[in-house]
Design a protein around this nucleic acid. Structure first.
Lengths: 196, 196
DNA sequence: GTCTATATTACGATAGAC
DNA sequence: GTCTATCGTAATATAGAC
C-alpha cells in the first residue's frame, strides 16, 4: 500500500465540489473559474482530472440515473400487485432522491443545450415512462380512482416527488428520512387510491 | 391615429420572443446572439428596445409575480373559511400559471446569479409564505388532517402545482383548462382534508 | 429602427515549466 | 499534480452610419 490518505483530488472528489457549484449557480452559469475557486486549485489542474466541464456533468447525471433505474430492479418493484409496486417505487424514489440529492437535483435541471444534457433528458423520460406504465397497470387492476386521468396523475406525482430537490436539505436522522418517504406516499396515494 | 399595425418590435413583443428562448435554453445558456436570431433582428437592434439581457428577465419575472400576487387580493382569497380560501388560491394559482405559462416558468427557474434573480426569488418566497399562512390557518380551524406536517404539505402542494410548467403546453379549450385546476385541487385536498 | 463594425471582457481549453 | 501564461472563441455591450 502507498500513503494511507492522499490530500489530492480524484475525479470523484472533484465531482462532489463541481456538482455543488453547478446546483448553486446552474450548469451554464458556472465557469471553470468558478469551479477552480471552489476546489482551491487552478483551472488547468481541473483538466488533469477530467476532460472538461461536460464530463463533470455526465458523471453527475449518470450517478443520479443509475440510482433511479436500480429501483426498478429491486424485488419490491417486481413482485405483488401493480398498485403496491408503484407505491414501493414512489417511496424508494424519494429515498434515492435524498441519498443522491445533489446529483438528482442537477439531473432534474438540465435544459438540453449539449449532447450530454439531451442524453440525460432522454434517460430520465425513460424512467418516468416505466413508472407511468406501472401506474397504468394499477389503474387496469381497478386499484386507482377512476375519476382522475392517469397521465395527469403520473405527472403530478412526479412533480410532487421531484420538487423535493428545491427545498430538502440533508438530515442526519435516518428516521426523519424514512418519515418523509412515508408522508409523500401517504399524501399521494390517499388522494389516488380508490376508497374501500 | 397612425398606421393601424406596425411591423416592428416593442419591448413587450420582443419580451415574448426572449422568454420563449430563455425557457428553451435557460437564461444563462441564452446569448444576445441567440435572441437576435430568434427575433430576426441584429443584436444591436435589441439594445434599442431594452437596456440589456437582464432587463428582459426583470420584465418577465415581474409579469409572473404580478399575476400571482393579484390572486391574494381577489375576493375568493379574502372571504370564507381558511380552507376554502386556500383551495381557491390553489385553483387560481394553477390558472394564472397556465395563463402566464412562459413567464411563470422562467420565474420558477431563476438561480440567483444576478440582483434581478435574487429579487425575484425573494418575492416568490413571499408569495409562498402568504399561502403557507393560509394553510396554517386552515389547520388551526381543524379543517386539515392532523397527521401531516403543515410546512411539508405546503411544499409538496406547491411542488405539485409548479411542476405543471415542466410539461403543460397551452391548450385552446377553456373547459380543459378549468378541468386541470379542478383536478389539481381535487387531488391535493382529497389527500389533505380531514375525512368527514 | 435597424444595420455593420468593433471594443472589451470572459470563457473553455492547452502548452509547457516545475 | 499543480502551476502560470496564453490561445482562440464567444460573450455583452457600444459607436456611428443609414
Amino acid at each position: 500500500m502507498t500513503t494511507a490518505r492522499r490530500d489530492t483530488y480524484t475525479p470523484e472528489t472533484l465531482l462532489s465540489v463541481a456538482v455543488r457549484v453547478f446546483n448553486e449557480r446552474g450548469y451554464d452559469g458556472t465557469s471553470m473559474e468558478h469551479l477552480s475557486k471552489a476546489a482551491g486549485i487552478s483551472k488547468s489542474s481541473i483538466y488533469h482530472h477530467v476532460a472538461g466541464k461536460e464530463e463533470l456533468l455526465r458523471r453527475a447525471v449518470s450517478r443520479a440515473l443509475d440510482g433511479l433505474f436500480a429501483i426498478l430492479d429491486e424485488p419490491g418493484a417486481q413482485r405483488g400487485r401493480a398498485v403496491e409496486r408503484v407505491e414501493y417505487v414512489t417511496r424508494r424514489t424519494v429515498e434515492v432522491l435524498i441519498a443522491e440529492l445533489p446529483y438528482v437535483t442537477l439531473l432534474l435541471r438540465v435544459r438540453g443545450n449539449t449532447a450530454t444534457e439531451r442524453w440525460a433528458m432522454e434517460r430520465r423520460r425513460e424512467f418516468d415512462h416505466r413508472v407511468a406504465e406501472l401506474l397504468g397497470a394499477a389503474a387496469a387492476d381497478g386499484d386507482l380512482r377512476s375519476d382522475v386521468d392517469i397521465r395527469l396523475a403520473t405527472r403530478l406525482l412526479f412533480g410532487m416527488i421531484n420538487s423535493l430537490v428545491e427545498w430538502y436539505r440533508p438530515h442526519p436522522d435516518q428516521a426523519e428520512r424514512d418519515q418523509l418517504a412515508e408522508t409523500v406516499a401517504h399524501l399521494a396515494f390517499d388522494g389516488l387510491r380508490k376508497a374501500r
